[in-house]
Each structure stands twice: as C-alpha cells, then as structure tokens.
Design a protein around this nucleic acid. Structure first.
Lengths: 338, 338
DNA sequence: CTGTTAGCGCCTTCAA
DNA sequence: TTGAAGGCGCTAACAG
C-alpha cells in the first residue's frame, strides 16, 4: 500500500550490498564494518526508511504489540489504567492494540481476545472484564499471557491485579456509621459484576455487624453521573419520609454517581452532611472539587495499571510463572460530604 | 510464539489437501467444492484455527488496522472521539492501534505516526495533535491517509475535522454580556494550541465589539479540574476587589476547569449566577449536574469522531480525494450558572 | 565482515 | 475444482 515504502532490498541495491547486510546494519547487530554501516544508515535515512514491523514480527515471532480490552473509554478507571499501560508499553518499545466491549458481553470479550491473538500480540490485559477462568486455558493453548485488572468475573484464578472492594466498602460504611448516620442507602451499579457484589456485601455485612437494619438499595444500569442522578430521584420519590425521619447517608457505587446524587439532593434543598451524607468510591480527580468535597475510597487506578503491565511483561519473559493475584491497597478519604 | 497456533499448512495436511485450498476454503473464496470446504472448515474449527493477520497483512498489503493518536486518555474529548473511532473501526472489521502523546510534543507525535506507518496501518487519526502541514506530505509519501480531529496546529490544510471554537467562544461571551455581566474573565489552557488562541481571540473580539474593556486572563497549564481550581484561587487572590466591584463572570476553557472554578468560588462564599457567573466549554455529561448546572457550549465530540473515521475510510477507498476540512457545528447550552 | 540460502504464514498467479 | 510455484519484507542460520 505504501508508495515509497522503501524496503531493505532497495537500500541494499543502492548501497551495493546484499540485503541481510542492510538488515544487520540497521539493527546494529555487530559484525559489520563501521564504514558500510554508516553508508547504509545514511541511505536509509535519506530515503526515509521505516522497518516493516509486520514482516519483522512474522519471522522473529515477536510482534512487539500488546492488546488491551476495556469496557468504556470514558470511565476514569479505564482511562487511568489504559494510560499507564500505554506509557509502559511504549517505554519498552511496544505498540498497543485497544478494543472496547461496551456491551459487557462475555462472548464479545473473548472474540476481542482472540482477534488480538490472531494479531500475534505478545500479551493481553483485560480491564474490568467478565470472563475469568477461560483465560488460563487460552494462555496455555496459545502461549500468549493474559492479565486481568479489576476482573468482574466471579472466579478469577489466573494472573490478575485487583483491589479489595469488600474491605473498601466496609471502611466506607463504618465511617458513615461512626459519623452518626443511621440509615445508610446504597446506590449500586448493576453492570459492575464482582465489584458490585463485593461492595453490596460489604454494605450488608457492616450494617448487620453494627446491628443496623438493612436499608434501601437501588441499582442503576451503568454508573455514570446521570445514572446516579436518576437513582437518587427514584430514591427521593419513593423513600422521602424515611430519609427525613432518620439521619441518612447515601453511599454510591462510584464518584460519578455520587456527583449525580449531590446535584439532585442540592436541587431538592437538602443540606449535604447535615441533612444527609453522601459518599462515593474511586477518588477521581474531581472528587476533591465536588460541592461539598466528596468523601470517598481511594482506588489506586494508575498503580493497578502499572502492576498489570509489570505482571504481563514478567509473564512474557517467564511464561511458566505460577498464577498470581496481586491485590492493591486503597484508603479512605474523608472530606466534607459526610 | 503461540503454541497451538495451528497453521493453514497443518490443516491442509489433516484434510489431505494442499494449503492454498485451505486458504480458499477459509476465506469463502468461491471455486471450491462445497464438500471439501465443509470438511476443512470443520477441522479448522476443531483445532481452533485463527488466521495469522500478520502474515495475511504482509502479502495482501491490507493490515486491517488503523492508528489513533491522542494526547491524554482521561480527557473527555479524547475518550469520546476514541470510543467512536473504535466502534466504527470494529464494525468494519478493523483493529485499532492507540498511542498517547502526553508530552504534547510535535516530534513525539510524528514518531508515533511513523511507528504506525511501520505497522502498515491503513489509516491514521490524530486527535488534538500539534502537527499539521507535514501530514499531507507524509500521506503523499506513504500513501497512508491521515485525518486530524480538532487539530491544534496553526496551519492545518490537510484532511481534517474541526469545530468552530471562535464562533462558540463568541456565542458564550455574548450570552454573558446579555446576562448583564460587565467584567468577563477568561481562564485559559496554555497547552491547547489553536483551541486556546481561537477562544481567547473570540473573547477579546466580542468584548471589544460590545465596547467592554478587556478583562483578566489567567492561563492554566493543562485544563483539568485542579487547574481550573488553581487558576480561580489565583484570580481571587489577585483581583478580589475588581470581581466584587463589577458584576463579573468567569468563562473557562472547558467544563473540567469550570468545575474547579465552581468549587473554589463556593468555598469562598460566592453565590453563583447572582454574585458571579461561570461558564464552561464542551458540555460533558457531568455539566448538567454541576452545582449549579453549568452553562456551556456543546461540542459534538462523538460526531466529530464519527466524521473523522468516515473521512478516513473514504480516503482509504479513494486516496486521491482532495483535502477537505469538515467543521462540525456546536451550540450554546444555557443552564443555571450564569 | 559479508553474501547465500531458507523460511515465517499467507495469498495469488498460473497450470493442470 | 484443485495443486504447484513464487513472493510479501524481513531475520536467522550458515558459508565464505
């Protein structure tokens, strides 16, 4: 397709050498006289030669490419993970294929993974995926390592980087209880798989442990700002009395939803933290600038991304490493919304 | 690298035919008996055959891959553009390479583009890039089409999709003037190239046109929430008197910065829209849920992404199409912050 | 130090 | 309808 995509052969012709010599010169692979090397490099530069990575990959079996699967680009979790993955891949001279599975569908997810394999990527990272156990099998079959980050699969026994959602949830709910909130509502995200079940369980267990009755749970479909707003509208229309009778707080699946909740509560005239408390999860950049500043749980997104690439490159170098699950610690961030 | 990466040859062996026959069967390329086709397909499926796209690309000269350059993943503009590009690429059976140029450096940007070319992508989209004119030249040299979206280059004469930043800026400032604000501050983003100069010019021109004195401009380094907050802090510390003397409004480079501004103003006890107005630019999802809901300019990000892919595929099919610059219309969204 | 030969996995002529 | 041969651009042996 490339018009002037000059090849190693033409350069050889121009330099009056054979093309393997050019190959060696351009890769700085010793055993070549400095003089001819320089001549070749000069010509290559002059003609704007770029190595054909496709061909190189075909023979060397090293494509120099990784694959990344995400669910939605606009989710801050994914963009932070992706950013770290891209930076690190690039630092090591790797290119990155990316694909998104907005449908959150397991079959589609596997289809993406397989297409990556067809492109001979050397490793794959799946962020917030739904598939778990099949990946170890695929790894064994294809020898292409797969690392999952923040997997939503129930059984995730392969190589993975995760975060203690249950622990974080417990800490948040405990904090709310200590603050004196007696009715603690949970606004969940139905599409979040394990993250949702873990946080929801943390909420239930912590309430029970403190002898508080289970309160209201409303699940939104996705977990964006507008979903948090909609869930809060629903909450107010159905349980206004209960919210006003007891000292109440709303814990949202993530910060984005919490923003929606804050907006709706504000619109309805609630005074946040006195009338009602609001907490999120994630600690995205904007959380500190919510009105009022949002109490939340810090999830080390970038570190999770970094750990995943690290694990992936380890596997590329040593594919026989035993399955490992790295859990990254998060922490409570108390601000003014609770 | 792949262990069981069964090849066309092995399948041919198993099916007792020659490998070109397998190739034809698997690509449904007519001229083959239905019987042998079925047999081959069955075997291929059984052994989990995946075509080696690398090899296929090498001979067919069609890699089935596109390249996308962005500056930062977490920027809502980029994530929306990227999402659309990914969806459309995928719909057409293309894979997507992605790379980010956080440094906003022209050389790095060109380096990425060249690495994409080395991977034989069939087309490239550069979102918010800084390079302009060189791309037409590269296109001519390599025959790989390049489309820029929201280019920050001063001269952007190639194939591009853009948005009328100047017009949008004028509309916003006019709106503020009509609302009775007499002192209109601009909080800019120094790293935004053309977008910044256009909006800043719109601000100046519109003020002048309405016989208003040019007011304060403070440029932040990036354009994130925290940058908007910092710029606002600086504004308050340096110009508190002026802000209180005249009816003032703050127009921010984007919605993210406006969030930061709202938070700081709120913290300092300003009543938004009565004491002081705030406007943004972009109309991201969260803008409608700011406190108070943010007046802004809607920039059709997804449509811009869609238009860019469309343009790119047109160029892939017809590389001789003349350079074209599509400008997408935006619109004013008046909410409660002004 | 350099050239020759072979082959990566696949597609595309051309014959049969 | 199928097989044989050649080649995409490159690297990796081996000779010389």
């Amino acid at each position: 397709m490339s018009k002037s995509n000059i090849s190693i052969k033409k350069i050889a012709e121009l330099a009056g050498v054979s093309y393997p010599t050019v190959s060696r010169a351009l890769r700085n692979e010793g055993r070549i006289s400095e003089e001819t090397r320089k001549r070749i490099v000069t010509i290559a530069r002059e003609y704007g030669y770029t190595p054909n990575l496709t061909a190189r990959g075909l023979v060397s079996k090293r494509s120099g490419a990784l694959g990344l699967v995400v669910t939605r680009f606009s989710d801050p979790f994914h963009s932070d993970v992706a950013q770290k993955v891209e930076i690190e891949a690039n630092r090591r001279g790797y290119s990155l294929f990316i694909a998104s599975n907005e449908t959150q569908d397991t079959d589609r997810e596997l289809e993406i993974v397989r297409s990556f394999q067809g492109r001979n990527v050397e490793g794959i990272i799946v962020s917030s995926g739904r598939e778990g156990p099949r990946y170890m099998q695929l790894f064994r079959e294809t020898n292409i390592p797969i690392v999952t980050v923040n997997s939503h699969a129930a059984d995730n026994s392969g190589h993975s980087v995760c975060h203690d959602d249950y622990g974080g949830g417990c800490a948040i709910v405990q904090h709310l209880i200590k603050r004196g909130y007696q009715n603690i509502v949970y606004l969940g995200n139905a599409s979040a798989g394990k993250a949702q079940t873990d946080r929801q369980q943390a909420w239930r267990d912590t309430l029970k442990q403190h002898l508080l009755a289970p309160s209201i749970q409303i699940d939104s479909s996705e977990g964006r700002v507008q979903d948090g707003a909609a869930a809060t509208e629903q909450l107010l229309s159905q349980h206004d009395q209960k919210l006003r009778r007891q000292r109440s707080a709303i814990w949202c699946f993530n910060d984005a939803m919490a923003f929606g909740a804050l907006a709706v509560l504000h619109r309805h005239g609630f005074a946040i933290s006195t009338d009602i408390g609001v907490a999120g999860f994630d600690d995205i950049d904007a959380a500190a600038f919510a009105i009022p500043a949002l109490t939340t749980w810090h999830q080390p997104r970038q570190e999770m991304g970094a750990a995943a690439v690290q694990m992936l490159f380890n596997l590329i170098e040593n594919p026989d490493a035993p399955p490992a699950n790295t859990s990254m610690p998060g922490w409570l961030v108390v601000r003014h919304s609770t």
